[in-house]
Design a protein around this nucleic acid. Structure first.
Lengths: 338, 338
DNA sequence: GTGTTTAATTGGAACGTTACAATGAGTACG
DNA sequence: CGTACTCATTGTAACGTTCCAATTAAACAC
């Protein structure tokens, strides 16, 4: 079956009795073209069912109107909300999103970057895989294409960055717990090496230090970043006989798992035990008990990131680093004071 | 700032002392090229930091290696899992995904289709907006580009389709509830006009009919498709004084809302009241009580859809309609028999 | 009328790749 | 030694746009 011949600008030029240059000008609605001509051309466009070929135009203009989005783990609702927000902010500018999920795999990240660059993206959002290093940036690292790192960044690599203020957010939450009278506060979850975990631990320690209280020992544990991680994390902690009164969790998903784990041991989160999360994913509010958490709205993050990238695409100036301040969402899971 | 001159196939041809045709052949690792030459070329590629320009190639080959994905609502985890699965199946084929979220808006759907077609996608996945009609397909409807409708389709429009078997799945669930002794079974949620709601209602009625039982009146209500919809839906039903003993919900998200709504009225889902969902999103299993539901795994759906689209891209044959059979996931929320 | 300005239109060279037909250099055969 | 092959390589015309310089047409001033 012969592939149907594509209708091109040239065909519609013939049909309308003008040159292809004129058609091109109409397409970009240039002020040079008087109403009469452009209407004639538009009629031919409808008549022949022409569809614009952006790839061809791209070749000439060096602007693809595509941005790449590389996400470490779309399974996580935080990231899917983030992507949605980016897409929403970009769509009005006629920019379309190429999405790649790398499932925390540096190898895939590398490949994704290469592929997106081959597709000529105008810019790139990158939420790098955990443990990714400069080498996992592939051809991006000595290219001039605008990139914005979101939510995570790569140590020792100068870049545009938009993220929540991890240190501040965690400190606020832990200070809140301290105010409530808690002392044995566990830090649960996340895995080593991620920059944001480091920052959150930092905030956790800062809160103690600023209050002149010695942080408890043996209560800082690593887990995988999903519900199961939180679930088994808290259980193994309890199994060791340690009995904290509160837990600050690396993120909401883990916190939900922690709550399930507590319940499975007959401990009532929000009643007997205070639980704090981080992210404010949409489940947080609707869970029973509702989850107290540090809100860095993925929506704001996406908006800021989009604005920043658009600006960098326009005029590629120096790198910027934007920290959006978190808000404390106090709900049922953090309970009343002791 | 002058935009850095792009390194092209021509530059590396010069550098390697061959013609650009040869370089092109190396790039496609053609068997015509002996090891020596290709190695020489590859060295130049590394040395100059060349990156392949797919848009240019595309112009010649008419294959973009892009597929478009249009999703009615990515906020819904079912769809984000679906997208993830598609992306995973496509990535090994060197195909990249262009994602557009249309937020159930037919206007945006139309625009999305047009934009993706301008970008020359090799194929299209489409989960159409509710109430979308043939007209909302824009240029797609008389184009020959392979499209696969997923999870929803447009009435009276011949197309490739991959979806769960809504009728069967719902019938299985409602038959289960009937077996348990329930008679006053509500059908909650979804909004009118969506084809999948119609099918699920169909299955609901079929179950009654096949058992020779008259379906209850006044228990079939519409809601918005999110948690809030389920929450307020069941509450307003209870407010009217109706007292069903079980609810089949249009989807899991609504079912979770229904459970919250029941609890807010002192009714214990799983104990006093049986709740069934549809979709088996990942929360279903982890909620308390865990949600009984009809599982159409978005992962399988995505895989099947990807396979189908790939095949259609290879050889555009006649339309196919694939229904994947659901599985019943019996968990706590459907309780014990009455 | 002629010359000058302004407004519309157009030809053709890019953009970076691939595909095809053509060329050249070996090698083998009779 | 000429012919016929094979194997590597290459020149060049596409692909569908945009952009620039050039052309034509129309409008105006004197």
């Amino acid at each position: 079956m012969k592939r149907a011949k594509r209708i091109t600008i040239k065909d519609i030029a013939e049909h309308a009795g003008v040159s292809k240059s004129t058609v091109s000008l109409v397409l970009q609605n240039s002020p040079l073209i008087p109403e009469g001509t452009s209407e004639k051309v538009r009629k031919s466009i409808d008549a022949l069912g022409y569809v614009y070929n952006r790839a061809a135009a791209n070749l000439r203009t060096r602007r693809s109107h595509i941005v790449g989005v590389i996400i470490s783990d779309i399974g996580n609702p935080f990231f899917s909300e983030l992507v949605t927000s980016m897409e929403n902010s970009l769509e009005p500018h006629g920019i379309v999103v190429m999405l790649t999920n790398i499932a925390e795999n540096p190898e895939r990240q590398r490949k994704a970057i290469a592929t997106l660059m081959e597709h000529n993206v105008d810019g790139l959002f990158l939420s790098p895989a955990r443990n990714a290093t400069i080498d996992d940036l592939g051809p991006l690292k000595n290219s001039s294409i605008p990139a914005v790192f979101v939510n995570r960044y790569i140590p020792d690599y100068a870049c545009n960055y938009v993220g929540g203020d991890n240190v501040l957010g965690t400190r606020m939450a832990v200070e809140y717990l301290l105010d409530q009278g808690h002392r044995e506060i566990a830090f649960i979850g996340g895995d080593e090496g991620s920059s944001s975990r480091k920052e959150r631990v930092q905030g956790y320690l800062d809160a103690f230090r600023k209050s002149g209280i010695e942080p408890p020992a043996g209560l800082n544990i690593l887990t995988t970043g999903n519900r199961k991680g939180g679930y088994s994390g808290i259980r193994s902690l309890l199994d060791e006989g340690v009995r904290p009164t509160a837990a600050f969790c690396y993120n909401d998903v883990i916190a939900l798992g922690v709550m399930l784990g507590l319940e499975s041991r007959g401990i009532k989160p929000g009643g007997d035990f205070a639980v704090f999360g981080f992210d404010d994913i949409s489940e947080a509010e609707l869970w029973t008990p509702s989850l107290s958490t540090v809100a860095i709205s993925p929506e704001t993050l996406g908006k800021r990131a989009a604005a920043l990238l658009l600006e960098k695409i326009e005029n590629n100036s120096t790198n910027e680093r934007i920290l959006v301040s978190p808000r404390l969402m106090i709900r049922e899971s953090s309970g009343d004071s002791l």
